[in-house]
Measured scan of single mutants.
Amino acid sequence: NITNLCPFDEVFNATRFASVYAWNRKRISNCVADYSVLYNLAPFFTFKCYGVSPTKLNDLCFTNVYADSFVIRGDEVRQIAPGQTGNIADYNYKLPDDFTGCVIAWNSNKLDSKVSGNYNYLYRLFRKSNLKPFERDISTEIYQAGNKPCNGVAGFNCYFPLRSYSFRPTYGVGHQPYRVVVLSFELLHAPATVCGPKKST
């Protein structure tokens, strides 16, 4: 009989979030998941669920729940959905087409922007091929755009693959930082360890 609440607040209220290319994953298990708490945590810009209804979450049980978190800019949030393409979905964080879970995003301009520009958040701009779903690539190998090998040196047709967002508070919403948490629900042929409040007794 599990009584402890799932530590969603640790994920959502973390002081620092990860850069999207090096997104963070927390496995959540053996706890009571009260998803209604999430609705009250922040004024969400996005709370979209796929393959599951957000209002039914509190009635369900899962084997595992994974919470992935990272920062992107406002106009990239739409890429965090099944079947999307674009720089983020292709080279940084890719959801599977049959994704079961929820994408939660909110504006973090007050936390993640600086007047002089916050350069701490990076994204991958160049990659030889698209990522597979939930693949994480943290390599910093020089990207070869031409025929000549780069031998690890940046220059003509040889690019450092990561680029930094420079978040400034005066930017338009599309270029402001957004914190994203992706909850993916895993149903294996194994005992369910993460249940809503109704199912945990």
Score class of each variant (00 low, 15 high):
residue 129 S to I: 10
residue 145 A to Q: 04
residue 107 N to Y: 01
residue 153 V to W: 09
residue 145 A to K: 05
residue 185 F to R: 06
residue 128 K to G: 12
residue 143 Y to K: 02
residue 77 V to D: 01
residue 26 K to N: 08
residue 167 F to W: 02
residue 112 D to E: 03
residue 66 Y to A: 09
residue 145 A to E: 04
residue 118 N to D: 06
residue 142 I to Y: 07
residue 72 I to K: 01
residue 64 N to M: 12
residue 30 N to S: 09
residue 178 Y to C: 09
residue 114 K to L: 10
residue 190 A to C: 09
residue 93 Y to V: 02
residue 139 S to Q: 09
residue 50 Y to W: 14
residue 63 T to M: 08
residue 113 S to Q: 01
residue 116 S to P: 10
residue 89 A to H: 05
residue 101 G to Q: 01
residue 161 P to K: 04
residue 146 G to D: 04
residue 186 E to H: 11
residue 102 C to G: 03
residue 18 A to F: 07
residue 110 K to C: 06
residue 132 K to W: 08
residue 154 A to K: 14
residue 100 T to Q: 12
residue 148 K to T: 14
residue 163 R to L: 15
residue 127 R to V: 01
residue 118 N to P: 06
residue 45 F to W: 14
residue 55 T to I: 12
residue 44 F to R: 15
residue 126 F to H: 06
residue 36 S to G: 11
residue 138 I to K: 10
residue 129 S to Y: 10
residue 198 K to A: 14
residue 69 S to N: 06
residue 104 I to T: 08
residue 198 K to I: 13
residue 154 A to Y: 05
residue 35 Y to S: 10
residue 9 D to L: 12
residue 72 I to D: 00
residue 6 C to S: 06
residue 111 L to P: 06
residue 84 Q to C: 09
residue 155 G to A: 07
residue 54 P to A: 14
residue 144 Q to I: 06
residue 40 N to P: 10
residue 31 C to H: 06
residue 29 S to K: 11
residue 171 Y to E: 00
residue 142 I to T: 07
residue 81 A to D: 04
residue 142 I to H: 05
residue 1 N to T: 12
residue 102 C to W: 04
residue 121 Y to V: 05
residue 124 R to D: 00
residue 179 R to K: 03
residue 67 A to R: 05
residue 50 Y to H: 07
residue 6 C to Y: 06
residue 187 L to R: 14
residue 51 G to K: 11
residue 1 N to W: 08
residue 123 Y to R: 04
residue 71 V to E: 00
residue 87 N to D: 06
residue 84 Q to E: 10
residue 153 V to K: 15
residue 102 C to T: 03
residue 13 N to S: 09
residue 150 C to I: 00
residue 41 L to I: 13
residue 16 R to Q: 15
residue 35 Y to F: 15
residue 113 S to E: 00
residue 53 S to G: 10
residue 48 K to A: 08
residue 91 Y to S: 06
residue 186 E to R: 10
residue 9 D to H: 13
residue 176 Q to W: 03
residue 169 P to E: 02
residue 81 A to Y: 04
residue 72 I to G: 00
residue 96 P to H: 05
residue 3 T to C: 07
residue 66 Y to N: 11
residue 33 A to F: 15
residue 149 P to N: 12
residue 158 C to M: 01
residue 123 Y to K: 15
residue 199 K to E: 12
residue 8 F to Y: 09
residue 192 A to H: 14
residue 200 S to E: 14
residue 58 N to R: 12
residue 16 R to D: 15
residue 146 G to L: 02
residue 49 C to Q: 02
residue 49 C to L: 04
residue 178 Y to N: 09
